[in-house]
C-alpha cells in the first residue's frame, strides 16, 4: 500500500478512536443522567434525591394496585425484584398499564420514600405475539401449575 495512504488510514483511525474514547468517558461520567429512570433499589438505598423531579421505573407488583372509587387516584408498587417503591398517581393511566408490566413514573419522592407521580408511562418488551398464542401460553401455564399443585 502507498505510504501516504497508510499514513492517512492511521491518522483517520486514530482520530475516530480518540474521539470515541473521549465520548465514552463523557457518557460514562454522565451515566446517571443518561439513564431514564432510577430503579427501586437505587431509591431505597437513598441514591435518588428527595423533592426533585425524577423518574422511577420497574415492574408493577401483582396485586399492589389500589384504585380510589371516587377519584382517579391510584396507588401501586414497582419492583426490580430486589426492592419495591410505592407510587401514587392521580390521572389516566396508559392502556398498557397493568400488573406485571414495566412502567416509568415521573414525580417527586416524599419523606417516606413514596413517589408522588405526575406522569406514568408504560414500557413494553420486544416480544410480540398474537392474542391466540398468548391465550394458549396462559392456558398451558395454568395447566402445568395446577398439575403441579395436584401432586
Amino acid at each position: 500500500m502507498h505510504p501516504v495512504r497508510k499514513k492517512r488510514i492511521i491518522a483517520i483511525s486514530s482520530i475516530v478512536v480518540i474521539l470515541g474514547l473521549a465520548l465514552a468517558l463523557v457518557m460514562y461520567a454522565l451515566q446517571q443522567n443518561i439513564n431514564l429512570f432510577y430503579s427501586p433499589t437505587q431509591i431505597v438505598n437513598g441514591e435518588a434525591p428527595k423533592d426533585v423531579m425524577l423518574r422511577a421505573g420497574g415492574m408493577v407488583v401483582e396485586g399492589s394496585v389500589k384504585r380510589d372509587n371516587e377519584t382517579l387516584s391510584v396507588s401501586f408498587e414497582v419492583t426490580d425484584f430486589t426492592e419495591t417503591v410505592r407510587i401514587e398517581y392521580k390521572g389516566i393511566l396508559p392502556d398498557l398499564f397493568r400488573e406485571g408490566q414495566g412502567i416509568v413514573a415521573q414525580g417527586k419522592l416524599n419523606a417516606n420514600g413514596t413517589m408522588i407521580a405526575s406522569e406514568v408511562l408504560a414500557k413494553h418488551d420486544e416480544e410480540y405475539m398474537s392474542p391466540e398464542i398468548a391465550e394458549a401460553l396462559k392456558q398451558s401455564e395454568l395447566n402445568s401449575t395446577s398439575s403441579n399443585t395436584s401432586y
Binding site: 431514564l36 430503579s39 421505573g57 413494553h124 418488551d125 420486544e126 416480544e127 405475539m129 398474537s130
Partner: peptide, 23 residues
C-alpha cells in the same frame, strides 16, 4: 447500556426474533 423507555432490538443477528413467524 442505559435504562430506557424503548424496548430492546426486534431483529438480532444471533437470535430468532421474539415473535411468531406470521409476524
Amino acid at each position: 447500556w442505559w435504562n430506557t423507555l424503548h424496548q430492546p432490538a426486534t431483529f438480532k443477528l444471533t437470535e430468532k426474533p421474539a415473535m411468531p413467524m406470521e409476524m
